[in-house]
Amino acid sequence: MSWIDIGSLDDIPLRGARLVKTAVGCIAIFRTAEAELFAASNACPHKGGPLSDGIVHGTRVTCPLHNWVFDLETGEALGEDARVATFPVRVEAGRVLLDATAIARRSAA
C-alpha cells in the first residue's frame, strides 16, 4: 500500500466528517472517536445524499437526506440491500493517511 497524507486529524471534528475529492469521486473521512477513522464513498446509494454531512454515531453515519444508516466498518446500509464502498485509512502522528492504491485501482477499472 502507498499512503497519501490528506491532512491533520485535528481538521476532522470528533463524531464528524470531511470530504476528500479524488479521481474516482468524493470520499468521506469519518472520525468516530479520538483516533478512529473510516473512509467511505460520499454518495448515498439511495438518492446520492452526501454522507459526510450526516450525523456520525458509534461507527455509523446517517444520510442527511432520508436517514439511511450505514455501518462504516462494512459499508452496508442497515435494513437495506445496498452498500457504499469503503477505503483503507489510518492515523499516524496526528496525520490522516488514505491508501492511494485503493483509489488508483478503482480508477483503472
Binding site: G7, D11, I12, V20, A100, A104
Partner: peptide, 15 residues
C-alpha cells in the same frame, strides 16, 4: 470557512 471545503483534493494526484 475551511471546514466547508473539502479536506483535500486528490484528483490530480491520482491521475
Amino acid at each position: 470557512a475551511d471546514s466547508y471545503a473539502p479536506l483535500a483534493d486528490l484528483t490530480l494526484e491520482a491521475a
